[in-house]
């Protein structure tokens, strides 16, 4: 039996249906973007600075936007395996012909797709509010250089990182809360690099941005194999290894 996108679709569809009725997921999807759009928007609207201060302020504001694709999927994906195990729904799923790779891809997509939609929507709202209410110099600064391109490029790359870290933690955890805390922690390193770049501690260059993007892309593409190797059906069902 080969890899089946039908089985991936079945889990993905189920997850998306479940999210719509899960208060915790709805709260995460609503609160995180609300928080991280409010702060930078207020900062930008209130600002009328010029020169270097504008660039720094815009950089920090856009950095907030990149927190969304890190925090949101890390919380959701950390729940993906340990949460099912906790509810007793994992064993029936594992009793079907589904392969671990199919289950993991489905779980990853279920966290990745809504994250992407929400993160891009948040960025779009941010741009619209800035265009309507911010100082023209700040609006120009937002569109100057590669800010928008960086946002569009790094949003899925960071989300991918956070999703795989979250699922990896989830496959090895026995407690949902601990998994979510570890997952958020594990998702932080690439964000830390971006913070340092935004604060000019690391000098931003096209080469550095491309290198970081390439590293994240490589991680996102290869991580599922590593996570699949960590996914031990027997340990997940029995709590111990044979």
């Amino acid at each position: 039996m080969s890899f089946s996108w039908t089985r991936v679709g079945a889990i993905l569809h189920k997850e998306l249906r479940d999210y719509r009725r899960n208060r915790f997921v709805i709260a995460t999807m609503a609160a995180t973007p609300a928080l991280f759009i409010a702060l930078p928007t207020i900062q930008l609207i209130a600002a009328n600075a010029t020169g270097k201060a504008v660039t720094l302020r815009v950089g920090l504001s856009l950095l907030y936007m990149l927190v969304v694709p890190v925090i949101m999927p890390s919380v959701i994906s950390a729940y993906s395996v340990v949460g099912e195990r906790d509810q007793g729904t994992l064993e029936p799923v594992l009793s079907t012909p589904i392969r671990r790779e199919e289950l993991l891809i489905a779980k990853a997509l279920a966290a990745f797709v809504p994250t992407l939609v929400v993160a891009y929507a948040v960025f779009g709202i941010f741009l619209a509010i800035a265009a309507l209410f911010a100082h023209p110099a700040i609006v120009s600064a937002i569109y100057a250089g590669t800010h928008v391109l960086v946002q569009l490029l790094f949003t899925p790359l960071l989300a991918g990182w956070a999703v795989w870290i979250g699922i990896a933690v989830s496959t090895r955890s026995t407690d949902v809360r601990a998994a979510q805390q570890l997952s958020v922690l594990g998702s932080a390193p690439p964000l830390a690099i971006l913070v340092l770049m935004s604060l000019n501690v690391i000098t931003v260059s096209t080469a550095l941005a491309i290198a970081l993007a390439a590293a994240l892309l490589a991680f996102d593409l290869l991580a599922w194999r590593v996570v699949a190797a960590m996914f031990d059906r027997e340990r997940l069902v029995t709590g111990s290894r044979g």
Binding site: D18, N22, Q87, G88, T89, P92, S95
Partner: peptide
């Protein structure tokens, strides 16, 4: 396999 606990998705 029907496990001892039904293991249904209760929100579905």
């Amino acid at each position: 396999i029907m496990p001892e606990s039904p293991g249904l998705y209760l929100r579905l």
